[in-house]
């Protein structure tokens, strides 16, 4: 690659420094590749929007928004999804922050073994625990309850949460904990008054990711909900299809519902993107 002299960031010429020292051709090739990659994500969504507008145009969207499909409104599915998502996020954030604090700031026998066992569960696929989960939730009377879905979701997200929170907690200098300890704070007060407020970026990031992942979960609601009123937005993709036929009208409505069902997760991501990037990056640098 050729090395080129370029003005620095903030220079009066307005150019920025390309720290990879790429040539003009390199930059064009890279931009083209990025555009092609983004098409893979954008084209299916555009196709759904296009098909939703083929027959009846925007009326398909109005029908989905103001009507119901097979006895359930899209608003009800949003509500169900968000209730589960916030329960899930609350569980994950609460337990991960406690675990992260404990793993990072306390020494106890078997600490590292426990930590690595926790991380091993990152590799466990949800499908492998479906059958036992089915029976466990039945025995506990959690079938057809929001908590019954939020709990197993949280169990699968927790290893990541613990990893993130421990990494973040280790960047918080021990002096803060020690200062509070000398100031006569109990362990719980230190956790509540010092650790939690200082972990805000990581907690927001973990919370946002947890909400997003739960909104996208199709498997657990499908397995554990039998009542129609409990249908979540992700699950509704399939359930709506059962009620809508192959007529042009229904195909339009179905595609409109597909686009609308993707909206909550998109809104959460767009709103929470700054927290996600800030929180994940925060664990990487020790100050």
């Amino acid at each position: 690659m050729r090395l080129r002299n370029k003005p620095m960031i903030g220079s009066k010429s307005g150019h920025f420094t390309d720290y990879l020292y790429r040539s003009r051709t390199d930059r064009w090739i890279m931009a083209a590749l990025l555009i092609i990659m983004s098409l893979f994500w954008i084209v299916p969504i555009l196709a759904a929007v296009d098909r939703a507008l083929v027959f009846n145009g925007w009326r398909n969207f109005q029908d989905v928004i103001f009507g119901d499909i097979g006895g359930i409104t899209i608003w009800r599915t949003y509500w169900n999804s968000f209730v589960i998502a916030f329960m899930h996020a609350g569980l994950v954030v609460g337990v991960s922050s406690l675990a992260g604090y404990g793993f990072a700031k306390f020494d106890f026998r078997g600490k590292e073994v426990m930590y690595y066992v926790t991380l091993v569960f990152l590799a466990v696929p949800a499908t492998s625990i479906l059958v036992p989960l089915f029976y466990i939730t039945r025995e506990l009377g959690l079938r057809d309850t929001f908590l019954g879905v939020a709990l197993p979701e949280a169990a699968l997200t927790l290893p990541f949460g613990v990893l993130l929170m421990r990494n973040f907690a280790e960047t918080i200098p021990n002096a803060f904990i020690e200062a509070a300890s000398i100031d006569r704070a109990s362990h719980f007060r230190i956790y509540k008054d010092v650790f939690l407020p200082m972990s805000r970026p990581a907690l927001l990031s973990l919370g946002t990711l947890s909400v997003m992942w739960s909104l996208q979960d199709f498997l657990f609601p499908s397995l554990l909900f039998t009542e129609r009123e409990k249908t979540t937005a992700a699950q509704a993709v399939l359930r709506f299809k059962e009620y809508l036929g192959a007529t042009p009208d229904d195909i339009g409505r179905y595609n409109a519902s597909l686009v609308l069902l993707a909206v909550p997760a998109l809104v959460v991501v767009i709103w929470g993107l700054r927290f996600i990037t800030r929180g994940l990056a925060a664990g990487g640098i020790k100050e």
């Binding site: 200098p173 002096a175 803060f176 020690e178 200062a179 509070a180 300890s181 000398i182 100031d183 006569r184 704070a185 008054d193 010092v194 407020p197 200082m198």
Partner: peptide
Amino acid sequence: HPRDRNIAMVFQNYALY
């Protein structure tokens, strides 16, 4: 325990919350 020693400490990095 440190909290029961009636001491106060100033840290190198100040440790201000």
